[in-house]
């Protein structure tokens, strides 16, 4: 279990001070796949680097499996880091070593015998689907393959926790999907707790069970991914769940009020909502944008409607009468 309590991190260089993290409190259960999402500069990397003390917090504690990471001696910390491994956006493989040697590297550091390390490294390369690339150098591999080698390397010391800092941000959507499946498999098969740092909602949707939304160094919202998607409460969460879409500018605020309809089931999503509203209440709604997404086997989605001012109350009355719908007026382009 990872417990982050009252964590602060301030970077100061001369007179410049950046409060990268402010009073972060998170609990990540064993075996979870936990997403930490936020815009660029929100403090995600700083937070994940505080977990293995690559970055020393200014205040607060990080406890991993009962061990207070900040209180460890250098030698103890190095030992602890073998159980909390990390993969990165840029893969960070040793470029002058073969894939096999890269996977052997952490075992070399901890003094595993060469033959045993080699055997284990081959098993791991097999696990990530690259047994034939043992003798290749990283420069000869694609980005996705390099990340697979990095994952094999991260598993070499039998970690309890895998930290992924934007691990798929440098990859194309297809490769991203494959790498995320691999990470999910590893979580399933080996029970390793995974912390996924990302700026992409799609990544969280695809593999995370829980998510924390980080905004300007604070946790804006936290909980089950399905719950956050169904009803994002914070401003930051809404920005991520309902990203501004191009179509939204075609609505004329002079004549229409924008209403967001959020549905939390397939039944609600498949209802001919706009047509029924037109027939039953004579409301001529303008569909500005619509979006659905499956999460955990359920369908979530939202429609942004433009409703003539004079018909607003009739429309709201109709919509609020339908189960599994959340309705809200939208004042600006958030």
């Amino acid at each position: 279990m990872i417990e982050i309590r009252n964590l602060y991190k301030t970077f100061s260089s001369g007179d410049d001070k950046v409060d990268a993290l402010q009073n972060i409190n998170l609990t990540i259960a064993d075996g979870d796949v936990y997403g930490i999402i936020g815009m660029s500069g929100a403090g995600k990397s700083t937070l994940v680097r505080c977990i293995n003390m690559l970055e020393r917090p200014t205040a607060g504690t990080v406890t991993v499996n009962g061990r207070d990471m900040g209180a460890l001696s250098n030698a103890e910390l190095r030992q602890a880091r073998r159980e909390i491994t990390m993969i990165f956006q840029q893969f960070n493989l040793l470029m002058q070593r073969t894939c096999l040697q890269n996977v052997c590297f952490p075992m070399e550091l901890s003094g595993v015998k060469k033959a045993a390390a080699k055997k284990r490294a081959m098993e791991l390369l097999e696990l990530v689907g690259l047994p034939d690339k043992a003798g290749a150098y990283p420069a000869q591999l694609s980005g996705g393959q390099q990340q697979r080698v990095a994952i094999a390397r991260a598993l070499a010391t039998d970690p309890k926790v895998l930290l992924c800092d934007e691990a798929t941000s440098a990859l194309d959507p297809n490769t991203t999907h494959q790498i995320l499946s691999l990470i999910r498999d590893i979580n399933d098969k080996l029970g390793i707790t995974v912390v996924v740092i990302t700026h992409q909602m799609s990544v969280v949707k695809e593999i995370c069970k829980h998510v924390a939304i980080l905004d300007h160094g604070t946790v804006a919202e936290e909980g089950l991914v399905s719950a956050v998607f169904a009803a994002p409460k914070s401003e930051a969460a809404r920005r991520l769940v309902y990203p501004a879409r191009e179509g939204e500018i075609i609505s004329d605020p002079g004549s229409e009020t924008k209403v967001r309809v959020i549905f939390a089931s397939a039944a609600a999503a498949s209802m001919p909502l706009v047509a029924r509203m037109a027939r039953e209440r004579s409301v001529m709604a303008n569909i500005i944008s619509a979006n659905t997404q499956p999460i955990d086997g359920k369908t979530y989605g939202d429609i942004l409607l433009g409703i003539p001012h004079e018909q607003l109350s009739a429309a709201l009355d109709f919509l609020r009468g339908i189960p599994e719908l959340t309705v809200e007026e939208v004042s600006d382009l958030v």
């Binding site: 690559l54 910390l77 880091r81 491994t85 550091l109 010391t157």
Partner: peptide
Amino acid sequence: IIEAAQSMG
């Protein structure tokens, strides 16, 4: 890459 090595102890 150096940081990655540090993260591995």
